[in-house]
Every structure is written in structure tokens, then in C-alpha cells.
Design a protein around this nucleic acid. Structure first.
Lengths: 244, 244
DNA sequence: AACGTTTTGTGAACTATGTCACTCCCTGTT
DNA sequence: AACAGGGAGTGACATAGTTCACAAAACGTT
């Protein structure tokens, strides 16, 4: 049941499509036949950093599975300001919100590659069919969505109630946990510039920069080649508890 | 497939448990036997305004269906400030995030009755079993969760990007749509005080009060017996478009 | 109708954060 | 190695929104 978790901790960079499918909890209980069927339906997309995958308000065609790399999901307001709603990583799914949708046929967000990587695309109708045919798959999906919803409510609370300092530290923690999985070293790398990080936190570049200055002085983080690197995870986590 | 929608537009105040179950899309395809089985498993709870249903960080036991009344879901930070994450109404489900959860066994939010009403409780394991046994039920659940996720991302964007005035108006619109269903009259009633409304918007009571003062002058809303009443839906909606 | 309680309205002071305007520093490229 | 161009740091300033402190109003209870 928690293969998906395992998956996120493992390095899948080099897996073939088939191996990936076998690994992913979503597909683990399918027969040889059906996995082949699904494999045939999957489109493979190799994308570069910065490539746009889908656009908010585009008609939703299907769902994406992240094989490698990282993806940011963003939303905009009328005047072009954007926020990063969430970040998807290997083993994650996105655009699931378009499934069986009664209220809207459009993608709810824009997806852009943060790191180059490979995605699999599955037509929405195919997946709906798959969900009908393989109940286990549905349970998997429900479980995944439960976690997403849970995450989202926590994010919402943080965004509303905390000040910039606390939000920044919490976001570092949240993303740190997300990216910890992906490399073996102690230092955790988050592939975001300060500008991008600011749109995750929901604040201005300058404000984040000021907080980061403090954190750098304390040797909690550093920046290298346009990535955020967490040097001292323990200290980072303790920052929150000390100053409320 | 969109029975759940219909449900929300209808007045279910007087339905019996069985009628309610039959109506709810979640259960519509179950056989006589199985519906009886589920009916047996359901606990009925009649609750008063202000009653607490579940608490954040309590061990999650199961899922709730709203038969009548309204429920607010709130989250708190360490110092006791709270936000209303969302509001559930007849036909809605809450605490679904506890299903199949691998990451946490706790409820993600506190639920409190906004209006007196009736809830049905279903043990989490029972529901999981139900989902396994009735694939249609799973699809229903996925569809419902899709919509919730979609809503949540929009809310998140608004909370981050808009100023208090715009957030207030948008929240009025959002809640207005939600409660429009529930009564036949033209005026829409939202069963929240300004204080509570402020925690939905994610701002202070005073700020909302100031915005409301303007809206009252324009005869868009009024307050009566601790409820917000929307007098002029059209004018309300046009407010957003004019001033960006 | 009068009471106590809770909610609301509003001015004033305060503050955190956004905005502006720079300079400086990376990083990747040629 | 030099260069260009985007990203990052930082002070000064503007300001939206919180907070505080009341007074007034609304509600529902007796």
C-alpha cells in the first residue's frame, strides 16, 4: 500500500517505462495484460527545465505522472501575479482534478518543469476507464488525493496565519521533506530561485531575501547554482519552535 | 453522475435516512441489501449550533455526511488563531482525508456546527470496505475529491494574491453560491457572524467590518440576526470586475 | 421592556511587508 | 577570460492592514 512512498525515496532516474509502472503503487496490482494496455496508452514526454506542460484554463485532456524531474503548478490572477500552488516530484500525479469533473473541463493550474525530466501522459478517459476496471487503482487514487487535500489545508492555514519569517521557514521544511528523498547526501537541494520560492511562500522576493540572509548567517541554508541548499536540517526545524 | 449536485440544490431537511441514502450519489447504485447494511452502520447525530463534531489532532475514526445544517472546518496555529478552511453543507462529506491515510491518523481539522442539523457518521474501515466492494462508490469519491482539490487551489490563490476588499467580495460570492441552494428566496443567507467570516477570509474582524460598511451603503448586503444576507447578487458580482 | 452578553463600528497609532531604486554578484556562455 | 543578463541583497519609503480601545448596537433571555 505504501509503494508510492517508497517510490519517492528511491532513485528512478534510470527505470524503463515498464519498470516505472511496476513500481508505482497505482499500477502494481494490474495483470500483465492490462499493464501492457496502459503502457501502450501512455505518452512519454521528455521535457527541459522551464518547459510548459499544461496551461490553466486550457481544456483538460488527461493526467500526468512524474517519472523524473520536478514540476511546479501555478495559478495566476488577472494582473499576472502568480503563486506556486504545489510542487510535484517523481512518483507524483498531477492534473488529477480533471477526473470525472462536473464543474469544469479546464485544467485548474499551469504546470511548468522546474527540472528537466520525464513525464507520462494518460488520457483522462483512459484513466477513468482504468479506474472503473481496476478498483484497486481507485483506492490508490483516493489515498493519494486524501494526502493532497490534507497537505493543502495545512498550507492554507500557514499562508493565512503566519508571518513571513515563519512561512519561509515552514516552506523550507515542507519542500525539504519533499526533496530529501531524491538525493542520498545530507544536504537537501531545492531547485528553486529565491524569486520562485517567494511565490510558493506567497510573499515578495525581497522579503524572502531578507529572511534568507539571516538563515545564511546562521548557516542553516546556502544558495548554489540557483538552488536552495539546506545545510542544517535540525537547526531549521528548531527555529520554528523557539520563537512563537 | 451528478446526483450529488442535484442534491445540493434540493431541500433535504425532511428526508429519512433511507431516502437520504437513496438520493446521495454515493450510494445510488447499491443493492437493497447493501444499502441496508450501510444504513445499519451509520450513526445518526443530531447536533446544535456550536457543537463540536471532531477535533484537529484527534485520532480519526471515520467520515461524516451532512444531512442538514452546516459545518465549519477550522484549523489553528499554536497561539490559538483559527481559520475556517471550508464550510460543508447538505450533501457534503467531511473528514474524507482520513481514508487510507498513510501519513497521519489524525483528523486534519476541527469541525463545528454552524447551524443545527443532522450528520451521519460512517466508520472509516466500513467506508474503506464499501469502497472496495462498490467500485462505483470509489469513482464518486474521486469525483468529489477532485472538486474539493480544485476549489482549494482557487482559494489558496485568492488568499495569497488579493487584497482584503477583493477577498471579502470573492468570499461572499463563494459562500453565496454555496448557500444559494438551500433556500428558495432571492436573498441569500450565510450563517456567519462578521467575526467568523473574517476567519474564512483570513483577515481581521475590523477589516471585514469596514468593507461590509461600504457594501451595506451600496445595499449589496445586510446583517440580520447574526447572519449575512446578500441582497443584490448581481451588484455583488459586478464589484469584482470593475475595480482591478 | 429591561437586562446582560456578544457582536459590531470606527478612529488612531503602529507595524509588517510590499514597492522602488539601486548596486553587486553570480552563472552560464562565447 | 571576459561578458551579458538574470538573480540577489539592501536601504528608504509608502501603505495596507492589524491592533487597541472604546462606544454603540443587536440579540435573546427573563
Amino acid at each position: 500500500m505504501n509503494l508510492l512512498e517508497d517510490l519517492q525515496k528511491e532513485n528512478l532516474q534510470e527505470l524503463s517505462t515498464e519498470e516505472f509502472l511496476r513500481k508505482i503503487a497505482f499500477f502494481k496490482d494490474l495483470s500483465e495484460n492490462s499493464i501492457n494496455l496502459i503502457k501502450k496508452r501512455l505518452d512519454t514526454l521528455d521535457l527541459k527545465k522551464g518547459d510548459k506542460v499544461i496551461s490553466e484554463n486550457e481544456v483538460a485532456m488527461g493526467v500526468y505522472f512524474v517519472h523524473s524531474g520536478a514540476v511546479k503548478l501555478t495559478k495566476q490572477d488577472e494582473s499576472g501575479n502568480e503563486i506556486i500552488v504545489c510542487i510535484k516530484q517523481k512518483g507524483d500525479i498531477f492534473a488529477e482534478a480533471c477526473l470525472f469533473s462536473r464543474t469544469s473541463e479546464l485544467y485548474p493550474a499551469t504546470a511548468t518543469m522546474l527540472l528537466e525530466g520525464r513525464l507520462f501522459f494518460l488520457d483522462k478517459l483512459e484513466l477513468e476507464k482504468g479506474l472503473r476496471d481496476y478498483p484497486e487503482l481507485s483506492l490508490q487514487m483516493i489515498s493519494y488525493m486524501s494526502d493532497s487535500l490534507r497537505d493543502m489545508t495545512s498550507t492554507l492555514r500557514d499562508v493565512v496565519l503566519l508571518d513571513v519569517y515563519a512561512k519561509t521557514v515552514k516552506t523550507l521544511e515542507r519542500l525539504g521533506t519533499k526533496f530529501k528523498a531524491s538525493n542520498a547526501r545530507w544536504d537537501i537541494e531545492i531547485p528553486l530561485t529565491i524569486q520562485e520560492f517567494a511565490t510558493v511562500v506567497g510573499t515578495s522576493r525581497e522579503s524572502v531575501s531578507r529572511v534568507f540572509s539571516k538563515l545564511k548567517k546562521q548557516e542553516v541554508i546556502e544558495m548554489k547554482s540557483r538552488k536552495i541548499i539546506i545545510l542544517d536540517w535540525c537547526k531549521l526545524c528548531s527555529l520554528l519552535k523557539n520563537n512563537y
